[in-house]
Amino acid sequence: ILELRLVQATLFKNVLEAISDLFSKANFDFSGTGLELQAMDTSHVALVALLLRAEAFNHYLCDRDLSMGLNLADMAKAFRCANNDDIITIKAEEDWSDTVTFTFESPEDGEISIFDFDFVGTNGVPLEIPEFPESEYQAKVRMPSAKFMRICKKLSSFGDSGDRDTVVIISVDKECVNFFTRGKTGTSTIVCRQTQTVDKPKEPTLIEMKEQVSLAFDLRYMNSFSKGSTLSDQVTISLSSNLPAVFEYKIAETGYIRYYMLPRIEE
Protein backbone atom coordinates (compact mmCIF):
# COMPACT_ATOMS: atom_id res chain seq x y z
CA ILE A 1 0.00 0.00 0.00
CA LEU A 2 1.06 3.57 -0.69
CA GLU A 3 -0.12 6.32 1.63
CA LEU A 4 1.54 9.72 1.91
CA ARG A 5 0.51 12.92 3.61
CA LEU A 6 1.77 16.48 3.38
CA VAL A 7 0.23 19.06 5.71
CA GLN A 8 0.98 21.90 3.33
CA ALA A 9 0.22 21.64 -0.36
CA THR A 10 2.78 24.35 -1.21
CA LEU A 11 5.72 21.99 -1.73
CA PHE A 12 3.92 19.81 -4.27
CA LYS A 13 2.28 22.83 -5.94
CA ASN A 14 5.73 24.38 -6.41
CA VAL A 15 7.16 21.13 -7.78
CA LEU A 16 4.41 20.97 -10.41
CA GLU A 17 4.77 24.63 -11.32
CA ALA A 18 8.53 24.04 -11.74
CA ILE A 19 8.12 21.20 -14.24
CA SER A 20 4.69 21.17 -15.87
CA ASP A 21 5.28 23.73 -18.64
CA LEU A 22 8.26 21.89 -20.15
CA PHE A 23 7.49 18.29 -19.32
CA SER A 24 4.11 16.79 -20.19
CA LYS A 25 4.46 13.42 -18.45
CA ALA A 26 6.65 12.18 -15.63
CA ASN A 27 7.58 8.91 -14.04
CA PHE A 28 6.94 8.81 -10.28
CA ASP A 29 8.90 6.14 -8.41
CA PHE A 30 7.83 5.58 -4.83
CA SER A 31 10.02 3.42 -2.60
CA GLY A 32 10.89 3.13 1.06
CA THR A 33 13.40 5.97 0.74
CA GLY A 34 11.06 8.47 -0.88
CA LEU A 35 9.75 9.78 -4.16
CA GLU A 36 11.96 9.98 -7.24
CA LEU A 37 10.48 11.71 -10.25
CA GLN A 38 11.96 11.83 -13.72
CA ALA A 39 10.71 13.46 -16.90
CA MET A 40 12.07 14.27 -20.31
CA ASP A 41 10.69 16.83 -22.73
CA THR A 42 9.26 15.55 -26.00
CA SER A 43 12.37 16.52 -27.99
CA HIS A 44 14.64 14.71 -25.49
CA VAL A 45 16.71 17.83 -24.93
CA ALA A 46 15.97 18.44 -21.26
CA LEU A 47 15.56 16.08 -18.36
CA VAL A 48 14.39 16.75 -14.83
CA ALA A 49 15.10 14.54 -11.83
CA LEU A 50 13.50 15.22 -8.47
CA LEU A 51 14.13 13.54 -5.15
CA LEU A 52 11.87 14.02 -2.14
CA ARG A 53 13.02 11.84 0.71
CA ALA A 54 10.41 10.21 2.93
CA GLU A 55 11.25 12.79 5.63
CA ALA A 56 9.84 15.52 3.39
CA PHE A 57 6.39 14.07 4.07
CA ASN A 58 4.47 14.24 7.35
CA HIS A 59 3.39 10.67 6.87
CA TYR A 60 5.06 8.21 4.51
CA LEU A 61 4.05 4.60 4.07
CA CYS A 62 5.24 2.60 1.06
CA ASP A 63 5.59 -1.10 1.64
CA ARG A 64 6.20 -2.03 -2.00
CA ASP A 65 8.04 -0.09 -4.72
CA LEU A 66 5.62 1.52 -7.12
CA SER A 67 6.39 3.22 -10.42
CA MET A 68 3.74 5.23 -12.22
CA GLY A 69 3.63 7.53 -15.23
CA LEU A 70 1.38 10.55 -14.72
CA ASN A 71 0.20 13.41 -16.92
CA LEU A 72 1.66 16.59 -15.46
CA ALA A 73 -0.72 19.01 -17.20
CA ASP A 74 -3.72 17.30 -15.56
CA MET A 75 -1.96 17.24 -12.21
CA ALA A 76 -1.02 20.92 -12.44
CA LYS A 77 -4.68 21.77 -13.16
CA ALA A 78 -5.81 19.82 -10.10
CA PHE A 79 -3.15 21.38 -7.89
CA ARG A 80 -4.17 24.87 -8.94
CA CYS A 81 -7.45 24.11 -7.11
CA ALA A 82 -5.55 23.36 -3.92
CA ASN A 83 -4.81 26.08 -1.39
CA ASN A 84 -1.27 26.39 -0.04
CA ASP A 85 -2.28 25.18 3.40
CA ASP A 86 -4.45 22.27 2.23
CA ILE A 87 -3.51 18.83 3.54
CA ILE A 88 -2.59 16.49 0.67
CA THR A 89 -3.00 12.75 0.83
CA ILE A 90 -1.63 10.49 -1.92
CA LYS A 91 -2.96 6.94 -2.01
CA ALA A 92 -2.66 3.88 -4.22
CA GLU A 93 -4.45 0.70 -3.25
CA GLU A 94 -3.11 -2.79 -2.83
CA ASP A 95 -4.50 -4.10 -6.13
CA TRP A 96 -2.40 -1.54 -8.09
CA SER A 97 -5.40 -0.66 -10.21
CA ASP A 98 -3.39 1.77 -12.38
CA THR A 99 -4.77 4.85 -10.67
CA VAL A 100 -3.54 7.03 -7.86
CA THR A 101 -5.74 9.23 -5.68
CA PHE A 102 -4.80 12.74 -4.59
CA THR A 103 -6.97 14.26 -1.87
CA PHE A 104 -6.88 17.93 -0.85
CA GLU A 105 -8.44 18.78 2.50
CA SER A 106 -8.93 22.33 3.66
CA PRO A 107 -8.06 22.58 7.37
CA GLU A 108 -10.34 25.62 7.71
CA ASP A 109 -13.69 24.52 6.32
CA GLY A 110 -13.12 20.77 6.00
CA GLU A 111 -13.85 20.79 2.25
CA ILE A 112 -12.33 17.76 0.53
CA SER A 113 -11.46 17.48 -3.18
CA ILE A 114 -10.58 14.09 -4.61
CA PHE A 115 -8.72 13.52 -7.90
CA ASP A 116 -8.01 10.11 -9.41
CA PHE A 117 -5.27 10.01 -12.03
CA ASP A 118 -4.84 7.11 -14.46
CA PHE A 119 -1.30 5.97 -15.16
CA VAL A 120 0.13 6.92 -18.58
CA GLY A 121 3.20 5.88 -20.60
CA THR A 122 6.28 8.10 -20.30
CA ASN A 123 8.88 9.35 -22.80
CA GLY A 124 11.53 6.74 -22.17
CA VAL A 125 12.14 7.62 -18.53
CA PRO A 126 13.35 6.70 -15.97
CA LEU A 127 16.96 6.60 -17.13
CA GLU A 128 19.99 5.63 -15.13
CA ILE A 129 21.68 8.96 -14.33
CA PRO A 130 25.13 8.56 -12.81
CA GLU A 131 26.54 11.05 -10.32
CA PHE A 132 29.43 12.51 -12.31
CA PRO A 133 32.51 13.30 -10.20
CA GLU A 134 32.99 16.97 -9.34
CA SER A 135 36.35 16.86 -11.11
CA GLU A 136 34.66 16.31 -14.48
CA TYR A 137 33.05 19.75 -14.43
CA GLN A 138 35.09 22.68 -15.69
CA ALA A 139 33.17 25.19 -13.62
CA LYS A 140 30.45 25.50 -11.01
CA VAL A 141 28.44 28.61 -10.31
CA ARG A 142 26.22 29.06 -7.29
CA MET A 143 23.90 32.04 -7.13
CA PRO A 144 20.57 33.13 -5.64
CA SER A 145 17.79 31.42 -7.59
CA ALA A 146 15.86 34.71 -7.88
CA LYS A 147 18.90 36.29 -9.52
CA PHE A 148 19.16 33.46 -12.03
CA MET A 149 15.47 33.83 -12.86
CA ARG A 150 15.89 37.59 -13.30
CA ILE A 151 18.84 37.04 -15.66
CA CYS A 152 16.81 34.59 -17.79
CA LYS A 153 13.93 37.09 -17.97
CA LYS A 154 16.23 39.95 -18.96
CA LEU A 155 17.86 37.87 -21.68
CA SER A 156 14.45 36.74 -22.97
CA SER A 157 13.10 40.26 -23.16
CA PHE A 158 16.09 41.25 -25.26
CA GLY A 159 16.76 38.16 -27.31
CA ASP A 160 13.34 36.69 -27.69
CA SER A 161 11.09 38.76 -29.99
CA GLY A 162 9.12 35.63 -30.84
CA ASP A 163 12.18 33.57 -31.71
CA ARG A 164 11.93 30.19 -30.02
CA ASP A 165 15.57 29.35 -30.71
CA THR A 166 17.41 32.11 -28.88
CA VAL A 167 20.74 30.77 -27.71
CA VAL A 168 22.50 31.96 -24.58
CA ILE A 169 26.22 31.52 -24.10
CA ILE A 170 27.37 31.04 -20.53
CA SER A 171 31.05 31.80 -20.04
CA VAL A 172 32.95 31.42 -16.81
CA ASP A 173 36.31 32.86 -16.03
CA LYS A 174 37.99 33.33 -12.68
CA GLU A 175 35.83 35.95 -11.05
CA CYS A 176 32.77 36.26 -13.18
CA VAL A 177 30.13 34.46 -15.13
CA ASN A 178 28.79 36.04 -18.31
CA PHE A 179 25.45 35.40 -19.95
CA PHE A 180 25.46 36.48 -23.57
CA THR A 181 22.70 36.50 -26.16
CA ARG A 182 22.15 37.98 -29.59
CA GLY A 183 18.98 39.86 -30.46
CA LYS A 184 17.79 41.06 -33.88
CA THR A 185 19.80 44.28 -33.81
CA GLY A 186 22.50 43.76 -31.24
CA THR A 187 23.83 41.69 -28.40
CA SER A 188 23.25 41.59 -24.67
CA THR A 189 25.68 40.54 -21.97
CA ILE A 190 24.97 40.18 -18.27
CA VAL A 191 28.07 39.95 -16.12
CA CYS A 192 27.85 38.50 -12.60
CA ARG A 193 30.86 38.91 -10.38
CA GLN A 194 31.62 36.66 -7.46
CA THR A 195 30.17 38.22 -4.32
CA GLN A 196 30.08 37.29 -0.71
CA THR A 197 29.19 40.32 1.31
CA VAL A 198 28.91 40.50 5.07
CA ASP A 199 25.48 42.13 4.97
CA LYS A 200 24.00 39.49 2.64
CA PRO A 201 25.72 36.25 3.66
CA LYS A 202 22.81 34.15 2.44
CA GLU A 203 22.90 35.47 -1.09
CA PRO A 204 26.37 34.84 -2.43
CA THR A 205 27.36 34.29 -6.03
CA LEU A 206 30.20 31.80 -5.90
CA ILE A 207 32.35 30.63 -8.78
CA GLU A 208 34.55 27.53 -8.73
CA MET A 209 36.54 27.29 -11.92
CA LYS A 210 39.07 24.68 -12.99
CA GLU A 211 39.38 26.03 -16.51
CA GLN A 212 37.64 28.69 -18.55
CA VAL A 213 34.49 27.42 -20.16
CA SER A 214 32.04 28.84 -22.65
CA LEU A 215 28.92 26.87 -23.59
CA ALA A 216 25.75 27.53 -25.60
CA PHE A 217 22.24 26.64 -24.43
CA ASP A 218 18.69 27.25 -25.59
CA LEU A 219 17.32 30.14 -23.59
CA ARG A 220 13.76 28.84 -23.52
CA TYR A 221 14.88 25.71 -21.65
CA MET A 222 16.91 27.76 -19.18
CA ASN A 223 13.88 29.95 -18.65
CA SER A 224 11.82 26.89 -17.71
CA PHE A 225 14.54 25.61 -15.39
CA SER A 226 14.58 28.94 -13.56
CA LYS A 227 11.07 28.15 -12.26
CA GLY A 228 12.78 25.86 -9.75
CA SER A 229 13.38 29.06 -7.77
CA THR A 230 10.16 28.48 -5.79
CA LEU A 231 11.81 25.40 -4.27
CA SER A 232 15.14 26.83 -3.18
CA ASP A 233 16.93 30.13 -2.55
CA GLN A 234 20.05 28.99 -4.37
CA VAL A 235 20.80 27.37 -7.71
CA THR A 236 24.04 25.59 -8.62
CA ILE A 237 24.98 25.40 -12.29
CA SER A 238 27.61 22.77 -13.17
CA LEU A 239 29.23 23.17 -16.55
CA SER A 240 31.28 20.85 -18.72
CA SER A 241 31.78 20.68 -22.48
CA ASN A 242 31.41 16.88 -22.43
CA LEU A 243 28.60 16.37 -19.94
CA PRO A 244 25.05 17.62 -19.56
CA ALA A 245 24.93 20.88 -17.63
CA VAL A 246 23.14 20.47 -14.30
CA PHE A 247 20.94 23.21 -12.84
CA GLU A 248 20.35 22.06 -9.27
CA TYR A 249 18.02 23.41 -6.60
CA LYS A 250 18.37 21.78 -3.18
CA ILE A 251 15.04 21.36 -1.40
CA ALA A 252 15.76 22.08 2.27
CA GLU A 253 17.32 18.96 3.79
CA THR A 254 14.95 16.64 2.05
CA GLY A 255 15.94 16.41 -1.58
CA TYR A 256 16.62 18.26 -4.80
CA ILE A 257 15.39 19.11 -8.25
CA ARG A 258 17.98 18.81 -11.02
CA TYR A 259 17.55 19.87 -14.62
CA TYR A 260 19.94 18.41 -17.20
CA MET A 261 20.71 19.73 -20.70
CA LEU A 262 23.63 19.12 -23.05
CA PRO A 263 25.38 22.19 -24.45
CA ARG A 264 24.93 22.91 -28.15
CA ILE A 265 27.90 21.85 -30.26
CA GLU A 266 29.33 23.50 -33.36
CA GLU A 267 28.44 21.60 -36.49
Binding site: S43, E128, V167, L262, R264, E266
Partner: peptide
Protein backbone atom coordinates in the same frame (compact mmCIF):
# COMPACT_ATOMS: atom_id res chain seq x y z
CA UNK B 1 25.57 27.21 -36.45
CA UNK B 2 25.24 24.81 -33.59
CA UNK B 3 23.47 21.57 -33.02
CA UNK B 4 21.55 20.31 -30.01
CA UNK B 5 22.48 16.84 -28.83
CA UNK B 6 19.66 14.89 -27.27
CA UNK B 7 20.01 13.55 -23.74
CA UNK B 8 18.36 10.24 -24.38
CA UNK B 9 21.21 9.10 -26.62
CA UNK B 10 23.80 10.47 -24.21
CA UNK B 11 22.52 8.58 -21.18
CA UNK B 12 22.00 5.37 -23.13
CA UNK B 13 25.59 5.40 -24.39
CA UNK B 14 27.46 6.03 -21.17
Amino acid sequence: ISQQVVLHKFFQHI
